[in-house]
Amino acid sequence: MDLISNLSLGFGVAFTPINLLYAFIGCLLGTLIGVLPGVGPVATIAMLLPATYALPPVSALIMLAGIYYGAQYGGSTTAILVNLPGESSSVVTVIDGYQMARQGRAGPALAAAGLGSFFAGCVGTLILAGFAAPLTEVAFKFGPAEYFSLMVLGLIGAVVLASGSLVKAIAMIVLGLLLGLVGTDVNSGVARFSFDIPELTDGIGFITLAMGVFGYGEIIANLGKSEEHREVFTNKVQGLMPTKQDFKRMLPAVMRGTALGSALGILPGGGALLSAFAAYTVEKKTKLQPGEVPFGKGNIRGVTAPESANNAGSQTSFIPLLTLGIPPNAVMALMVGAMTIHNIQPGPQVMTSNPQLFWGLIASMWIGNAMLVILNL
C-alpha cells in the first residue's frame, strides 16, 4: 500500500499545470534533440542547466529527465528514415530500420519503435518505482572483475553482431579500441595520441564516429550515383500500423529488449547504449521464424528490441542516481549538477526528506512516455 500512496502523491505533484508544461517542453526538446544527429542530450542538458536556476526544483528535474528519455525516442526517426542515427543508442536501429524504409515500410518501423519504446519506458519506470532500493544493491556488487567481464562480453557481442568476415569484425574491434585510447589518461592525466590538438584531449566521441560511418558515408555514396539512381525519400510516410504478423514477432522482442534494458540500465556505464547493442545481439541469436526476413534486411525485431532496450535502460539508470547519488552515465552526472544547484543532496535521503521530488519525478515519466508516443507517431 505504501507504493500506491507514494505514487498518488507523485501524480498529484506531476499533474500540476506547471509540471505538465515542463514535462511537455522536456519531451519535445528531447525528441528534437534525438532527431538532430550529433547534438545529444548531454550537450543539451549542459546548455540548459543555467536556465533551471529560476525554475522550481521538481519542474527543473522533470524537464531535464524528459530531454534524456525523449532523445531515445527521437533518435530512431532519422535512423529509420535517412540512415542517420540521431542518438548514439539508435546506431543499431539503422541496420534493419533503414532497410524497412527502403522497402516502403517506414511507417510500421516508426510505429514499432514508438510502441516498443512506450511499453519499455512504462515498465522501466515501474521497476524504478517498485524496486529502486534492492536493485541498487545488485549494482553495488559489481567490482573490477565483473566490469572487466562485462567489457569482454561487449567485445564478444560485437563479433557476434557483425555479419560477413570474422577477421574484418575483429579488425574493426581492434580499431575501435585504438580509437578509444585517444584522449587523456584517467590515472596520470597525460594526453595520449592527441598530437597537440586540444580537441582530441577529450577523446573521439562515439556519436562523431557513428555520424561518419553511417551518416556521411551514406550521403557520399548517394551523391556518387547519377541523379536517377539516388535514394531520396520524398513521399509521405503512410500506413503507420504494423500488421498482425508484425505484432506477433514484435511482442517477444519487446519483452526481451525491455528485460535486458532494465537490467543493464542500473549498471554504471551501461544505460541506453549498451542495452540497445545487447538486445540486438540477443535477437540475432534467436531463431528466425518461417517466412521471417533475415536480420540486416529489414527485420522488425531488429527495430523493436534495441528501441525497447534503450528506453528501458534510460529509465532504470535513474535508480542509482536517486537512491545512492551515484550517476551511472554522463547525463545522470548532469542531473546531479541540477540537483546540487537546487540544494538537493542526491542519495537515499531524497526519498525520505523530499518525497514530492522523488515520486513526482517518477510519476512524470509515465506522463512523459504517453506524451512522447503521441508526439512521435
Rank of each mutant, 00 (worst) to 15 (best):
residue 7 L to D: 00
residue 8 S to G: 03
residue 12 G to K: 06
residue 21 L to K: 15
residue 22 Y to M: 12
residue 25 I to N: 12
residue 27 C to W: 06
residue 32 L to S: 05
residue 35 V to T: 12
residue 40 G to L: 11
residue 40 G to W: 05
residue 44 T to S: 03
residue 48 L to Q: 02
residue 55 L to T: 00
residue 56 P to H: 07
residue 56 P to I: 11
residue 58 V to A: 05
residue 68 Y to C: 15
residue 72 Q to I: 14
residue 101 A to M: 02
residue 107 G to R: 10
residue 114 G to H: 12
residue 114 G to P: 00
residue 119 F to D: 01
residue 120 A to Y: 09
residue 121 G to Y: 06
residue 123 V to R: 10
residue 123 V to A: 10
residue 127 I to A: 14
residue 130 G to L: 14
residue 130 G to R: 13
residue 135 L to D: 00
residue 144 P to I: 09
residue 146 E to G: 07
residue 146 E to V: 09
residue 153 L to Q: 04
residue 153 L to P: 01
residue 161 L to V: 11
residue 178 L to M: 13
residue 184 T to D: 01
residue 185 D to M: 12
residue 192 R to M: 13
residue 195 F to D: 08
residue 199 E to S: 02
residue 201 T to S: 14
residue 206 F to Q: 10
residue 220 I to L: 06
residue 231 E to I: 15
residue 231 E to H: 06
residue 234 T to P: 00
residue 242 P to V: 09
residue 243 T to R: 10
residue 247 F to Y: 13
residue 247 F to W: 08
residue 248 K to H: 09
residue 254 V to C: 00
residue 264 L to Y: 06
residue 268 P to D: 08
residue 270 G to A: 07
residue 285 K to G: 06
residue 286 T to M: 12
residue 289 Q to H: 14
residue 300 I to Q: 11
residue 306 P to K: 10
residue 307 E to H: 13
residue 307 E to D: 13
residue 314 S to D: 09
residue 315 Q to E: 11
residue 318 F to V: 15
residue 324 L to G: 12
residue 327 P to D: 00
residue 330 A to H: 01
residue 332 M to R: 07
residue 332 M to L: 10
residue 333 A to F: 05
residue 342 H to D: 06
residue 345 Q to R: 15
residue 351 M to S: 08
residue 360 G to S: 00
residue 362 I to A: 04
residue 363 A to V: 06
residue 363 A to Q: 02
residue 363 A to P: 00
residue 372 L to A: 02
residue 372 L to I: 07
residue 373 V to A: 12
residue 374 I to E: 02
residue 375 L to I: 14
